[in-house]
């Protein structure tokens, strides 16, 4: 079958992959239109890296089919490799080559030169330029990550796959990295990125929540957060640990999780007015001797939604 001219940048249909007894991916299907900044959000071991490696033609799926830029990832391997940019999760540059040498090396692998596509990498590379003679292995985490991004872009790919580019990187470098991705997206590049940090989902146009090889949800970050579907309360009162234990012992407690400076609480009863839930919990906590009890409705985040959804398959199993 000739490769169909697909309008989507990525199309995945029923993809599955096992490693021995471990199911890494199970029946994954989704489509990513060109120009989208799409995020896979999930913890280590969710299957993100396996999926990325299939999409960039490094490993073969056991089941299903995937196309990238309209080309089959199992048959159009050589054509695709020239067209995709890939930044693996593990630092994969040459630590004993300098910043500049790494960049020139990756350009030459693709038969390109650094100068040819310099406009694309310039905003990033200019931050690295003062250290261009430093061995890549001696860079800080944030700088390594920027160099790796330059190396993935140096042949001007049509689509960029970034596997956990911000893992283990501090909050400031993470923020700067996402600003760089915004700029690249503005140039029309399709970007597929994975992250274990739930708060980064809001940086993406759409996200897929992924857990144990399965997609839990695909939608915009806002709609995923809104899909939480139950009244959610932020509870504050004095010391957190005694409060956590006390709320857990409340007969009507559904889920209770530490969340930022508060606890996030859902009630197990359906159909009750939020005010009734809040005042019931407030009275209970006062009865348990807590002072300054605060219980108020709060907007669910992606992380609340993720936790609510990931709980389900576990109970079913």
């Amino acid at each position: 079958m000739p490769t169909l001219a697909s309008t989507n940048a990525v199309e995945i249909d029923g993809l599955g992959k096992r490693f021995g007894a471990t199911v890494a991916l199970e029946n994954v299907s989704l489509a990513i239109p060109p120009g989208e900044l799409f995020g896979f959000i999930g913890p280590d071991g969710a299957g993100k890296t396996t999926l990325f490696r299939i999409l960039v033609t490094l490993i073969l799926p056991d089941q299903g089919r995937a196309t990238v830029l309209g080309r089959d990832v199992t048959t159009d391997v050589w054509d695709l490799r020239r067209r995709v940019g890939y930044m693996p999760g593990r630092f994969s540059l040459y630590p004993d080559l300098s910043v500049e040498e790494n960049l020139r090396f990756f350009a030459s692998v693709f038969g390109a030169s650094v100068e040819e596509h310099y406009d694309l990498i310039a905003p990033i590379y200019e931050q690295l330029a003062p250290f261009k003679d430093r061995p890549a292995g001696a860079l800080s985490g944030g700088m390594k990550q920027k160099l790796a991004l330059c190396c993935a872009l140096v042949h001007r790919p049509e689509i960029l796959f970034l596997d956990e580019p911000t893992t283990g990187v501090d909050a400031v470098s993470r923020r700067e990295f996402w600003e760089l991705l915004d700029r690249l997206k503005a140039s029309g590049l399709t970007i597929v990125v994975s992250t274990p940090y739930m708060d980064e989902a809001n940086r993406c146009g759409r996200v897929a929540l992924i857990q144990r090889g399965r997609i839990l949800a695909i939608d915009t970050p806002t709609r995923i957060a809104e899909s939480f579907g139950r009244p959610l309360f932020a509870v504050r009162a004095g010391k957190r640990y005694p409060l956590l234990l006390a709320v857990r012992e409340y007969a009507n407690a559904g889920t209770v999780f530490p969340f930022g400076d508060a606890l996030h609480y859902t009630d197990r009863r359906d159909g009750l007015m939020p005010d009734a839930i809040a005042s019931g919990l407030r009275d209970y906590l006062r009865g348990r001797g807590f002072a300054d009890v605060e219980v108020k409705l709060t907007a669910p985040t992606i992380e609340d939604s993720f936790m609510a959804r990931m709980g389900e398959p576990e109970r079913a199993a």
């Binding site: 999930g42 280590d44 283990g168 274990p196 857990q211 640990y241 956590l244 990931m310 709980g311």
Partner: peptide, 20 residues
């Protein structure tokens, strides 16, 4: 680092327990 959001919270409960 990299742990799912529920396990991350369970881990923090172990921390609270140890501190208590």
């Amino acid at each position: 680092s990299g742990v799912d959001p529920i396990t991350r919270r369970q881990f923090w409960e172990l921390i609270y327990e140890a501190a208590a």
